[in-house]
Nucleic acid binder design. Structure first.
Lengths: 312, 312
DNA sequence: ATATGACGATACTTCTGAGATATAGCTGGG
DNA sequence: CCCAGCTATATCTCAGAAGTATCGTCATAT
């Protein structure tokens, strides 16, 4: 049973005449007669009544033709769907990102991407740098935005591109003595109980903190350690101490909290976009394209990568 | 694009390996490679990633395979559906019948047929003899039960078989003087205003009435003429006169009406089952089979017809 | 670094079967 | 009764599906 049999049967039902149906199919009449006969033998039932007035489907033929139409529609749709998927118009993009990215690059990128690719399902996961890296390596994410380049097992199979900057800020309860100030100094911070991200979860922030306060500062040693930025803010708001984290971790203002700069201004590692080097999916390419249009300081690595994908 | 391509792609996706998929398909590996390559060329997109760990569908491949599965399912279902339709297990039977048939042969026939062929859609039309005949000739009915053999244009293309008897009865309001009597005589009827079926609608009943009352009886000439038996009963119940019709027109007892025999007992023409001589549909054959099992006095014509259908 | 093995792609051959041409068989209308 | 129109059958041809042999590539083992 081949698709040809379905096409021939449908043409015959449409033209109600072997000769004309064959003409419409671009073949001669005898082959059509034979194919229909073969089809009827394979189905095990007569599908057409040959009368003097024309060729008409039997009840079995009607039942067969209804299914045949749907089968051919599915085949046509298969080609269309595959083409759309190949062009990255449909599909799925699993994005891991650090909370601070929600403030600057992501809103514009996601808005533009959602407009350009309305049928791509976006799965957004707010994750720490280390978790995003692990997700990429394990194939559970397609692309990630992290603070600093991914490190650790499997990171060598990732491609990373800087797409923005960040720096350290402090966060505290609105009843804290420093609340209302535009900035706090290192000396002031040393006298506070600090709240910082767990070292293995946010290695980039941890390194910057060491640079700011000193390698084995007592303030760092005595700091409260939180799993993620939400916890830092929550602990700070409840008066546990002064939280330290990336400036853009504040996607939206929250009640009961006060944010201020840290002097000296302490740059954090760049915002980094990463993805699996061997991932050539068109959805990813489209996303990278959107990134490039939205982030002026994307580097040559992304261009190079895009060129690789296109020439394939 | 042929069904073969779909089957091969699905096998490859299942086995994730060209050699094993080819083995499962009963072909060698190179033809499978070529068919997949041809498919990818026709679709215009790479459908499989060939990696060292195995062969896996791309996003386009996943989209294609989902449709391909449904297409092949439709093809398989087409064969199944056609077979069921050819065996008369599914389909439609449009039955025209005179109301009186609802009392005797139809209940048992329909019950048995509905049990044997639960997926055949029964379309029941209570029609006069002449309307059923016209429906059969016009192809709007598949089978009909009438009073007397169909006559008129196109009736020669019908096959007719007697399946039961009927006779004339009278119907009147319960307040009519004759109500309560087991029978009325011809002499009594002549003194009543009669209600009868329109001659062209029920020719068999009309002929029997003429035989009973005389060719041009004043009682007949002055009778009220109704389109169908329901109207006869309704008019009789409302006191217009005494209705005359087939005994088995009384499918169910009704309030405000009294039925009684007519003496002398006046047989009506046989109940006749008719269908188009060239109709060889399996649903009709199944229905005729049911009729034969339920009606002991079906004649040789039906047997002969059934034999014709089977030997085809 | 080299050898080895597994796997898919390519080159070439073989043969099935789809399609073309010619014609027979059937049937209703003149 | 013949003719016209339509489908089925017979035979041939050729495209293309499948088979065989071999190559190229890459990962792993020695």
């Amino acid at each position: 049973m081949e698709a040809r049999h379905l096409r021939y049967a449908l043409a015959l039902a449409e033209h109600e005449h072997f000769g004309r149906a064959a003409g419409a199919l671009g073949i001669a009449q005898p082959p059509l007669s034979k194919q229909i006969a073969d089809l009827e033998r394979e189905v095990g039932a007569r599908l057409f009544d040959r009368t003097r007035q024309g060729v008409f489907p039997t009840a079995a033929g009607e039942a067969f033709l209804a299914r045949a139409r749907r089968a051919l529609d599915e085949i046509a749709a298969a080609v269309v769907d595959a083409g759309r998927a190949a062009r990255g118009e449909t599909g799925r993009l699993r994005l891991g990102f650090i909370a601070s990215a929600l403030l600057d690059p992501l809103p514009g990128v996601l808005r533009r991407f959602g407009r350009d690719r309305p049928d791509v399902r976006l799965e957004l996961h707010e994750l720490s740098t280390s978790r995003s890296t692990a997700g990429l390596v394990a194939g559970e994410l397609d692309v990630a935005i992290t603070l600093g380049s991914p490190r650790g097992a499997g990171a060598e199979h990732l491609v990373s591109v800087p797409i923005g900057h960040d720096h350290l800020v402090a966060v505290m309860s609105t009843v804290h003595p420093y609340a209302g100030r535009p900035s706090v100094s290192v000396a002031q911070l040393r006298r506070q109980r600090l709240i910082i991200a767990a070292g293995e979860d946010e290695p980039a922030v941890g390194a910057s903190l060491q640079a700011l306060l000193g390698k084995s500062s007592p303030a760092l040693a005595g700091a409260a350690v939180a799993r993620d930025v939400h916890t830092i803010i929550g602990l700070a708001a409840s008066g546990v101490g002064v939280g330290l984290g990336p400036a853009r971790m504040l996607a939206a203002p929250r009640p009961e909290t006060w944010f201020c700069e840290v002097t000296p201004r302490t740059p954090l590692p760049d915002l980094i976009l990463s993805f699996a080097a061997k991932d050539h999916s068109p959805v990813l390419s489209a996303f990278l394209d959107t990134i490039r249009q939205n982030c002026p300081d994307v580097g040559a690595a992304l261009d190079h990568r895009l060129r690789l994908t296109e020439t394939e």
